[in-house]
Amino acid sequence: MPPPELILFYVLATGTLVAAAVMLLPSTGRNPIHSAIALIAAFFCLAGLYAQLSAHLLTALQIIVYAGAIMVLFTFVIMLLNLTPADMREPRFAWWKVAGGVLGLFVFGKLATVITLATGGEQPINLADPMNTPLGSVRDVGRMMYTTNLVAFELASVLLLVAAVGAVVLAKKKLDYVDAPEPSPARTHLHRNVPAGTVLPHGADADPPASHGAHH
C-alpha cells in the first residue's frame, strides 16, 4: 500500500493531465466554453499539487487568481467574440504540426530522462531542497517579497502600469476619429440597430453568421 500522499499525488497529476488534454481536444475545441471548463479543472488539480508541496499561498492564489479572475476574463472574451462552429476553421493536417509534435515529444523525453537521472539515480543530487525549507507559507512569501525581492516586487507594479497603458493605447480606437461628418438623423435612426458584424467597411468580412450581433 503506497502512502496516501503518493496516491493523492497521482490522482491530482492524472487529473491535471486529463483536464489539459480535454481542453485541447478538437472535439471540445468546437465549443470554447467546454475548453474553459476543462481549464478550470486543470487549475484546481494544480492547486492541489501546490498544496502537497506546502505552498499554501500559491494554492490560494491559484484558485483565486487563475480559477477565479482569469477564468472570468476568459469567459468574457469567449462570450464577446461569440464564435460559432461556422466561424472556426477545420483543423488541417500539416507537416509542420507533425514535426512540432515530434520535437515536443523529444523535449519531453529529454526532460523526463534528466529529472529521473538527477533525482533517482545512483547518486541522487542534492537539490538544496527548497521543498523542505519553509518557502510557501503566507508569512515566508510576505517576508521575502518585502525584503530580498522588494526591488522585483516594486518593478512588477511598474510592469502592470505599463501593460495597462499599452492595452488602453491599443484598444482605444474610438478616439481616433478623423473628419467624420454628421450624418442625417434619419439615416442614423434607420441603421442604429443593424447587427455589428453584418457590414464592415472593407467588405472583406462581409458575411459573418447572422447571429453574430443579434444577442446584444
Binding site: 450624418p183 439615416r187 443593424v194 457590414v199 467597411p201
Partner: peptide, 23 residues
Amino acid sequence: LRSSIAGLPPPTTATAGAASVSA
C-alpha cells in the same frame, strides 16, 4: 467594447460608413 476587443469597427459608424461608401 465588444467591437474594440474583436477588432471590428464600431457598430454604428461601420453601418453609416458602409451606407455612404461602396463597400
